[in-house]
Computed example of a mutant assay.
Amino acid sequence: MSSPATPAAAPGDLILTNARVVTPDHVLTRATVVVRDGRIAAVDDAPSRVPGAVDLADDYLLPGLVEMHTDHMEKHFMPRPGVLWPSPLAAVVAHDAQIAASGITTVFDAISCGQYSEGSMRRQMLADQIAAVKHARAEGVLRADHWLHLRCEVADPCVVEIFEPYHTDPMVRLVSLMDHTPGQRQWSDISKLRQFDSDKGWTDAEFEARIRERLEDQARYAHKHRAQVLAMVRGRTDIVLATHDDTTEAHVAEAVAEGATISEFPTTETAAATAHAAGLGTIMGAPNVVRGGSHSGNVSAVHLACEGLLDGLSSDYVPASLLQAAFHLADEIDLPLPTGVAMVSANVADMVGLPDRGRIAVGQRADLVRVTRADGVPLPREVWRDGRRVC
């Protein structure tokens, strides 16, 4: 990959050398990446002898990971059931630190507009979460590049009034349409929902009453609210629309008709195949890969990867799973490492409209992560965003 046209090192360049550099097509050994003014200026398939070059000691060098759907910030705002952390800014910064330490340099914080389980306190947290992310950005204290993904729970009676103040916000770049009503999509198997809600302490009669209430809400609101949310985002050419937990061909057809371009967490192979054939990017959970299956009993992400139906991954509720999943796919099903890495970087960046990142290639943003392996586990050692070390 080196050539006579490769620019010579200039004062102020960051030179990372003696690394296994994962490019879009290859893993280059003992390679060098030159960073200048926050961009990748050169990629050479040979070590550098320039004084001051940083020796990565044969560790991997990957593009910074791109996360388009993480619920992880909620854990910092509500670290215990019913407990809201008193400083929203501190909660965001703690979340950001764990995101960056996991090798994620671009993150779409998935914030719920509406809720589908009692006691989640998501309505109370929403305004504080959005304001705190903006505050942290303004203060320059964030390591990763943060954007907003608003998750619209269409069967919630209040979703439209919750979403309306934010639908023109320029930080909102991704909107997903969700319906977690029991008996369909993610909760097709009611027994899995009963297990998920086991901490509520409900009796069987109380659980069944709650299901009836949610089914009534869906019948009353879901179709109408879906149309209203779509109408609000229709004029935003910078917003990417995703559908969530597609289970049937009809779900995918509806999403295509509405202009969605991403199918998040399809629950069946049929839905994933239909979405893939329709040109929707398919996203599955990285915990599904690492754990060897879905906690809801849905289709295996590894199986979809084997069938060529997986385009990208989301860490969902475990930030560290994103990097682990990329290497797990390479180890377990012999997926080429560049292909697995693209599922957590370039492919996702393209889906969310950020093609300037996610690849180690000349001209791309210098978002990079140094990775070592200990006992086979890939671990981030250093992280750079725009050529500046942040971890």
Rank of each mutant, 00 (worst) to 15 (best):
R20A: 13
D169T: 06
F77M: 05
H251T: 03
R20I: 00
M232S: 12
A330G: 14
A301G: 13
A286F: 11
A136P: 06
S314W: 08
E118H: 12
D367N: 14
D37C: 07
G358S: 02
T248A: 05
L61V: 10
K192V: 03
K75C: 07
L310H: 14
G312S: 10
S321R: 14
P7S: 09
T248H: 00
G387S: 15
V344L: 04
G119H: 00
S2Q: 15
L150E: 03
Q228V: 02
A273L: 13
A90C: 13
E332W: 15
E258V: 00
D350S: 12
R143L: 01
V33G: 04
D45Y: 05
Q115A: 13
A131S: 06
H276K: 13
S314V: 14
H251P: 04
M78D: 11
S176V: 03
Y221H: 15
M351F: 07
L335H: 11
T181Y: 09
R30T: 11
V83C: 15
Y116G: 11
A110P: 04
G292C: 06
V252A: 03
G103D: 01
R39W: 10
G64H: 01
V318I: 15
R370T: 04
L322T: 10
K192N: 13
G183Y: 13
M232D: 07
V35Q: 04
E332C: 11
P355E: 06
A31N: 04
G140N: 03
V240K: 13
A250R: 01
P380H: 07
I99R: 07
V43M: 10
P81N: 02
A277K: 05
G82S: 10
V362Y: 08
D59F: 07
I130P: 05
R212C: 00
R20C: 08
S345V: 12
A250K: 04
L322I: 12
V240P: 01
P88G: 08
P4N: 08
N347L: 00
R388G: 12
H135Y: 11
A94C: 11
I360Y: 03
S296N: 12
E258Q: 15
P4T: 05
S321H: 14
A101L: 09
E249Y: 06
K224I: 06
V229K: 08
G114H: 14
G114S: 08
H295P: 13
Y166N: 02
L280E: 00
G358A: 00
V290I: 14
S321Q: 11
T29N: 12
D334L: 13
S48I: 05
Y116P: 06
S176L: 00
K75V: 09
V54I: 02
D44Y: 02
H244G: 05
A100R: 14
G38Q: 03
R30W: 00
D199G: 05
L126V: 15
V256M: 07
V22E: 06
R385T: 12
V240W: 05
